[in-house]
């Protein structure tokens, strides 16, 4: 399946995960920009204290507040929030116990870290709870505060545990304020309002991990959304030469003759170097083709994003967002 679907357009919470190093944060940011295109307001959230969003947009570290971080074509707007579990816990406690000044002291003592260590699920409940609050928040006009929320989630290895709030709640007390909140989170995450997207590279390991994650999501009754295939290189060799080249067979004489006809005179070593590079390229393209076939097993909508040789800066994010809009993201 290629491209975005209407069903995905109806989601209000877009969770983005992927194996480490696949460019999950970049894709999440580009997706937020794409969704905001045309005048919508989108919130981009991170939860792992990495300040990856600030780095990507070349900004100082984000505070625990929703700040405008970019405008999108057509009057859209992206805001960003770095959720800090400590701040989120204090926010909850404040709501119910009015800790005030003592809260800060406890924080300094490491008491909050301690509480989240006692029950590791608590941290996830707090983070997803904050995300849910953002998704559901309504303006006085009755409209949702955000048309969509994009969550830069933990990597594939941990994402299901992170989203499996039901399981985390089993660790917690049977009553109490956070418990009540969590039930709403469970409802949101398992509804059609949420889609969990996966970022993959066309390499065997990331693809296998993606397939495993899809199976795990299905088993946990969470809805896989789209697969974003990141950093796709253009195939350069003609299809008919590809298989032979991948096995090391490139006609060096033909290459030399071709170069000569273009006015390039090169020595044997250079021809050999060019041929070696072409062979490596062909091997990689073949591996990518195999990875793509494997990925098709997931049977999810897929969207390809090009490799950016110059790295990812703010301008590149807009470029990627444009590609996504071109593939139907809205």
């Amino acid at each position: 399946m290629n491209g975005w679907t209407d069903e995905l357009s109806r989601a209000r919470l877009h969770v983005v995960t992927g194996k480490g190093g696949t460019g999950k944060t970049t894709v999440a940011a580009a997706l937020a920009l794409a969704l905001a295109t045309g005048g919508r307001r989108v919130l981009l959230v991170e939860v792992e204290n990495r300040q990856g969003i600030a780095r990507l947009f070349d900004r100082p570290p984000l505070p625990y507040a929703e700040e405008r971080i970019a405008s999108a074509p057509g009057g859209g707007e992206v805001r960003a929030l770095a959720v800090d579990p400590e701040a989120a816990l204090l926010e909850y406690l404040d709501m119910f116990y009015n800790l005030g000044f003592a809260g800060r002291t406890l924080r300094r003592m490491g008491a909050i870290e301690f509480a989240t260590t006692l029950a590791p699920g608590l941290r996830d409940v707090l983070l997803t709870g904050k995300v849910k609050e953002c998704v559901r928040r309504v303006r006085p006009t009755g409209r949702h505060e955000y048309d969509a929320v994009v969550l830069d989630a933990p990597p594939t290895g941990r994402v299901v545990r992170f989203l499996d709030v039901t399981r985390a709640m089993a660790e917690l007390a049977k009553a109490g304020p956070i418990r009540g909140q969590s039930e709403g989170v469970v409802k949101l995450l398992h509804s059609g309002d949420t889609a969990v997207h996966l970022v993959a590279l066309l390499e065997e390991m990331p693809v296998r991990e993606t397939l495993d994650a899809v199976a795990e999501l299905d088993a946990a009754d969470l809805r896989p959304g789209a697969v974003f295939v990141n950093r796709v290189n253009p195939p350069r060799l003609p299809e008919r030469s590809l298989v032979a080249a991948a096995q090391g067979r490139v006609d060096a004489e033909r290459v030399r003759a071709g170069l000569a006809s273009a006015g390039l005179e090169v020595d044997d070593d250079a021809v050999e170097g060019l041929v070696d590079q072409a062979v490596e390229h062909a091997m990689r393209v073949r591996a990518e083709q195999r990875a793509k076939e494997l990925l098709a097993e997931a049977d999810l909508p897929s969207l390809e994003l090009p490799e950016l040789t110059d790295g990812v800066d703010v301008a590149a994010l807009y470029e990627l967002a444009e590609v996504l809009v071109g593939r139907g993201v809205r």
Partner: peptide
């Protein structure tokens, strides 16, 4: 140049790979 003339697709591809 090679792509315009269409004469040597293999050499043209090898050069693109090199530039990348």
């Amino acid at each position: 140049r090679l792509e315009r003339s269409g004469d040597a697709p293999l050499a043209a591809a090898v050069l693109r790979v090199h530039a990348d």
